[in-house]
Design a protein around this nucleic acid. Structure first.
Length: 254
DNA sequence: ATGCCACACCTTGTGTGA
């Protein structure tokens, strides 16, 4: 089984490749779920990632979206997108790595509560929830990791966050529905510092002020929850030059 | 009230993100 699994929205794989390679070398996670590649599959820097010791599978898209799974062990049963959902946006890739089913997802942003894109977000969330219900029936050891674009509780958003988006009741109810399938938020399995976040706006010195949200999550099924050893946000890549606006989250298992 | 920043795009502004 993988002993460690991370998720990271890199906001352009091309720009963030040096950050990613350095981080892989220093942290050496067994599985990494990446989001917002912003490139198509042909542009994924496969050779560099393989040279770092990882298999790489991707579901890319030019300009927007795009997801990938990096893994020390070979992936099997690869699925791209949510089965049965007609969606031109590349937001999901899933694979079985050893004995564990890994679903990597870049959830829609939603733009503004009540907008067309918000309606798409809720429809997409409903489809994902149905998909996860079926996956859990077939794979007792399941991870859903990615950029959820939802801060699930009050404590997951800075008190001065004024927008409804990412914290609205329908978004939080959708997150609860995923948890209700029997998935645990790995981060909340442990004591954490107050104001722990995974994303900070590039503007207005948000990172320096820790004006952020916790929207990147690792949800795990009960057998994996029972084996959790730790789960933490790694802010070190956010402190580099030209960082992603997101920091990676990493879970370790005994 | 907007842009504040970053990224991609057959760029010289626009769409999108969170």
């Amino acid at each position: 089984m993988p002993r460690s699994l991370a998720t990271w929205n890199v906001n352009s794989l091309k720009v963030r490749l040096p950050h990613l390679l350095d981080w892989l070398e220093s942290v050496s996670p067994d599985v990494v779920c990446l989001q917002e590649l912003k490139c198509d599959d042909a542009a994924v820097p496969r050779a560099e990632i393989e040279a770092a010791g990882y298999h790489v599978i991707s579901h890319g898209q030019k300009t927007y979206n795009g997801v990938a799974i990096l893994s020390r062990q070979a992936p099997a049963e690869i699925v791209r997108n949510i089965p049965g959902l007609s969606d031109p946006q590349s937001r999901v890739i899933a694979a079985t790595i050893e004995d564990t089913r890994v679903v990597c997802a870049y959830f829609p942003n939603g733009q503004a509560v009540g907008s067309d894109k918000f309606a798409y977000k809720l429809e997409w969330l409903s489809a994902l929830t149905d998909y996860m219900r079926g996956e859990l029936a077939h794979h007792p050891r399941l991870v859903l990791a990615g950029d959820f674009n939802i801060a699930p509780e009050e404590r997951d958003a800075h008190p001065d966050w004024k927008e409804d988006l990412l914290v609205s009741p329908p978004e939080r109810e959708a997150f609860s529905s995923l948890r209700a399938l029997g998935l645990e938020d790995a981060f909340r399995h442990f004591e954490q510092s107050n104001r722990s976040y995974s994303w900070w706006d590039y503007r207005r010195n948000a990172y320096r002020r820790n004006f952020g949200l916790r929207i990147d999550h690792i949800l795990v099924s009960p057998p994996l929850a029972a084996q959790l050893e730790s789960c933490a946000v790694d802010t070190s890549p956010r402190e580099r030059e030209r960082p992603s606006d997101h920091a990676p989250v990493i879970a370790r298992f005994v």
